[in-house]
Design a protein around this nucleic acid. Structure first.
Lengths: 340, 340
DNA sequence: TTGAAAGCGTTACCAA
DNA sequence: TTGGTAACGCTTTCAA
């Protein structure tokens, strides 16, 4: 056992050498045929023999060996600690993935749970991706970006609340969402505004900047912002609603539509009139919000399309020096319905 | 340019040879130090020099080279054509990912959009994963399973409606969901049951077996099953509701809770009394369904936990011969509320 | 038209 | 305690 057996001895994985042997040609010829190398002309009978041999052995090329030899990959790494929740985000995700495949990139979502920013960057760098698109679930530091770039990544693109030195940062400021909601409520005359913070882990990345945005918007007007905590279950909502009248609030921005729907129901069950006694506002403009009575006011968020982001990735990979044109990454817009 | 430049010439990616050179030792020594190989004792000063050199150069090992040498990987491939929709599924997904990482596997979601079963299997095999867990978005054929196994995959596990020859198939029969819903409705005396089929692509994988299950359950009782089509928007729901009374139905099973909520609202807007005139039933037991009035009856689905599935993966990898004990993969149970 | 050989970055054996 | 070296699977240049 001087050599690690790659398989349960009886079952060696076929290599191009095996194909060559069976077809009675050299490994070079196998490579030419299987990759349709146009620079070399191989006779039709030889091609057939090679193809048949490959087929018979069930030969599949070894991606690692290939990229090792090539010195680069076409892998775009999408760090995905959690599968993002919510239809908005997952649609964007799917679009991006699809568009990148059309550009002939291999999209790999790599879950780096429980690693901090720099550890994660190192783990990603080991895979030698040609590009990394970080959706902001892991905080990438300038150092982490350096590690990735030095390991050969041509494009490091971050979507998140703030710029990251060295990366192409697309700033997606969640504060705008909170600001939008607060401005809408204030504009309609509400002065004591609760802002719901989900208790669930992982949402902080969005919820905190949304709160900040609301606070900033209120500051300019003298309205009061009151942070509230709730988790995504009926008990928690009921508990919050039970104390509601003591809070002295006339409006609440509830993080997103799902939390808003939950809270609104709890308030209604408590006899709080919506919006007369308390206005309720969500975010994300889910279809379901329109089904409630009163219909839920919300913040509609236009995200950059996956298609456009994929184009950016490709451009930066081809020309890593060029600065990205500034994208209108995210636009938020209040949608008034009946709950506010 | 006889050799592909791996980087923009000025920026070569550091290798272990560079580290060795800088530290004044051999590549072997570098490997020993960086991998904490216990079989060899390296002096503390040497270790320090190596570590410092690695740090200074920003050296990160090359995963492809490593696995090429090792002859195997710890990669578990999760084909993910679409990020799955719905909180149920994504929770399961996250759990699985997390549990596999704890077992020291590298979880890679690989999006193989637009490839058919056997093409996809080939693409996966190129990465030489040690295990593949297919959630059923891509139909894996016995041939595809063969390709994967011959390429070194120790475990090929499928979750889906039916067994796949050669793979460890965990049968997750969506027919049970539809059957459960229909049985519940029939048990409560409804005899003319519509079954909603979403118009959205990709959901067919679930919706068709659910319809089948409902049909089978009805067959035994003489109830009528009527397939209906609707897409996930208000217009489509309104159109369906407008014709509702002509359909002569006294109940509807609406694929899942989201579609059910949408349809129920449209029916209410049309003046159809729920459940007196028409009973409505969903599936998935979403929290939001409890918020409607009347509260939505549903089918609660218990999925196998990601933790357990991860354990199975690990067991099969360690001992590919062993048959998996039969898991109770999915259990469906009707939950009666007010809408039926 | 085909083959021989070098080399990609790593690790592990064996020798010093 | 350390270093030399071969080998993993593949592609590509050069020579025949």
């Amino acid at each position: 056992m001087s050599q690690t057996p790659k398989q349960s001895a009886e079952h060696p994985v076929p290599t191009s050498a095996d194909v060559a042997r069976l077809a009675g040609v050299s490994r070079a010829t196998v490579s030419y045929v299987l990759n349709n190398t146009s620079a070399v002309r191989i006779s039709e009978p030889t091609r057939r023999r090679v193809r048949e041999a490959a087929e018979e052995l069930g030969y599949v090329p070894h991606a690692a060996a290939r990229s090792l030899r090539a010195g680069h990959t076409r892998m775009v790494l999408l760090p995905a600690a959690h599968v993002p929740v919510g239809p908005l985000y997952s649609r964007f995700f799917n679009e991006l993935q699809w568009a990148l495949r059309r550009l002939d990139y291999t999209v790999v979502q790599y879950g780096s749970l429980g690693l901090d920013g720099d550890e994660a960057a190192r783990a990603w760098a080991e895979l030698r991706p040609v590009a990394v698109v970080s959706l902001g679930e892991v905080a990438l530091t300038p150092h982490g970006v350096g590690v990735l770039k030095r390991s050969g990544a041509k494009a490091v693109i971050t979507l998140g609340p703030e710029r990251v030195e060295g990366a192409h940062s697309l700033v997606m400021d969640q504060r705008e969402v909170g600001g939008c909601a607060a401005a809408h409520l204030i504009g309609r005359g509400y002065r004591n505004i609760g802002v719901l913070m989900p208790d669930e882990p992982g949402l902080e990345l969005f919820s905190r900047p949304r709160l900040e945005g609301a606070t900033e918007a209120a500051m300019r007007t003298g309205a009061r912002i009151e942070p509230l905590t709730m988790s995504y279950d009926e008990e928690s909502a009921a508990a919050l609603a039970a104390d509601w009248r003591g809070l002295g609030l006339d409006a609440v921005y509830a993080y997103n539509d799902e939390y808003a729907m939950l809270l609104m129901r709890a308030l209604q069950d408590e006899g709080v009139a919506i919006p007369r006694e308390t206005a309720v506002m969500g975010a994300d403009d889910l279809l379901l919000g329109k089904l409630l009575r009163p219909r839920l006011s919300t913040v509609q968020i236009d995200l950059v399309t996956g298609q456009r982001l994929a184009g950016l990735v490709d451009r930066v990979v081809r020309d890593p020096g060029a600065e990205p044109e500034r994208h209108d990454l995210m636009r938020a817009r209040a949608v008034h319905r009946e709950s506010s």
